[in-house]
C-alpha cells in the first residue's frame, strides 16, 4: 500500500510526466531507435559504421568534441577568474555585476552571434585594431574559421558557468582564505586545496551546461562556421533539410544525446568529489 500523500504526489506529477513522455520522449526514442536499424530492416550498428566510414563525418565529429572541450576548458578558467572576483565584491556591486553577467543569457542568441559577424570580418573591428597596433601586416580571415565558432560559443556560454560558480564560492567560509594565507599557503595551494573542493558542485553544474551547450548549439556554428566549419548540429540540419538523409540524421542524434549524457555523468562525478575511474563509494 502506498500512503495517501505519496499517491496524491503521483497524481500531481502524472500530467507533467505523461506530457513530456508523449510530446518529447516517445518521438525521440523512435527517432533514436531508427539509428540501430539498417536499410534492410535488420537491427545492428551498420548505420554507425557507415557514418564513421565517411571522412567528413569523422572530421565533424572530432571537431565537435574538440570545440566542446576547448570551450568548456576556457569557460572554466575564465569562469573561476570572474567568479572569484565577483565574490570579493561588496554585496551591492556584486548584485549589479551578477545582473550584468545574467544579461547576455536573456538576449537572443541570434542577436548576440550577429555581432561577431560585424566584429570578425576583414574590415571589422578586430582586424582594424590588430592592424593599428601592428600585430598583423594584412587583415586575417577570421570569419568561417574554428576560432570564430570557439569565440562565439565561449561568449554565449560563459555566463552559464559563472553563475553556479559564484553561488558555490559564496558558501566558502569568509575566513578560510585569509586563514590559509596567514599559514603561508600560496595562491595555487589555496585554489586547489580550498576553493576547488568547495566549489566542485558549481563546477559540475556549470561544466555540463557549457559542454552540452557547445556541442548542441545550432545558431553559432551556422552563422560563424558556415559550410566550411560544420559541427554535428549543422551537419544534422544539412542532412535533413538539404540532402533529405534521415539515416545519417538519426546517427548524429544518437551521438549528440550520448555525448551529453556521458558529459553529464562525468562532470557529476567530478562535482561529487569522486576521482574519475573509481567506482561509486556507496
Amino acid at each position: 500500500m502506498i500512503a495517501a500523500p505519496r499517491l496524491r504526489g503521483l497524481l500531481l506529477m502524472a500530467p507533467a510526466g505523461a506530457f513530456v513522455a508523449l510530446a518529447f520522449l516517445l518521438p525521440l526514442a523512435i527517432l533514436l531507435s531508427g539509428s540501430f536499424q539498417a536499410e534492410d530492416g535488420q537491427l545492428g550498428v551498420q548505420r554507425y559504421v557507415q557514418f564513421f566510414a565517411d571522412p567528413l563525418n569523422r572530421e565533424v565529429f572530432l571537431r565537435t568534441l574538440r570545440i566542446g572541450f576547448l570551450v568548456t576548458l576556457a569557460s572554466v578558467i575564465l569562469g573561476y577568474v570572474a567568479a572569484l572576483a565577483i565574490v570579493d565584491l561588496d554585496p551591492g556591486s556584486r548584485g549589479r555585476v551578477i545582473g550584468l553577467v545574467t544579461l547576455p543569457i536573456m538576449i537572443s542568441p541570434v542577436a548576440r552571434t550577429y555581432a561577431w559577424i560585424v566584429l570578425l570580418g576583414r574590415t571589422g573591428l578586430v582586424n582594424s585594431v590588430a592592424h593599428e597596433f601592428g600585430f598583423t601586416d594584412a587583415p586575417l580571415r577570421l570569419l568561417y574559421t574554428e576560432p570564430a565558432v570557439f569565440l562565439g560559443l565561449l561568449q554565449l556560454l560563459l555566463p552559464l558557468i559563472i553563475l553556479p560558480l559564484v553561488s558555490a564560492l559564496e558558501n566558502v567560509p569568509r575566513d578560510a582564505v585569509p586563514a590559509a594565507r596567514m599559514l603561508g599557503a600560496g595562491w595555487w595551494t589555496i585554489f586547489v586545496r580550498i576553493l576547488l573542493p568547495l566549489s566542485r558542485e558549481g563546477l559540475g553544474v556549470g561544466g555540463v551546461l557549457v559542454f552540452t551547450g557547445a556541442i548542441t548549439a545550432y545558431i553559432t556554428p551556422a552563422m560563424l562556421g558556415g559550410a566550411k566549419v560544420l559541427m554535428l548540429e549543422t551537419l544534422l540540419y544539412q542532412r535533413v533539410n538539404v540532402t533529405d538523409d534521415i539515416a545519417t540524421a538519426t546517427v548524429i542524434t544518437a551521438l549528440l544525446v550520448a555525448m551529453s549524457v556521458v558529459a553529464k555523468a562525468l562532470l557529476n562525478r567530478i562535482a561529487r568529489g569522486r576521482p574519475l575511474g573509481r567506482g561509486r563509494a556507496r
Binding site: 559577424i117 570580418g121 576583414r122 574590415t123 587583415p139 580571415r141 570569419l143
Partner: peptide, 11 residues
C-alpha cells in the same frame, strides 16, 4: 546570404 557582406568587408 553573406556574399555582400564578404565583399563589403573586403573578404
Amino acid at each position: 546570404a553573406h556574399l555582400v557582406q564578404l565583399f563589403q568587408q573586403g573578404e
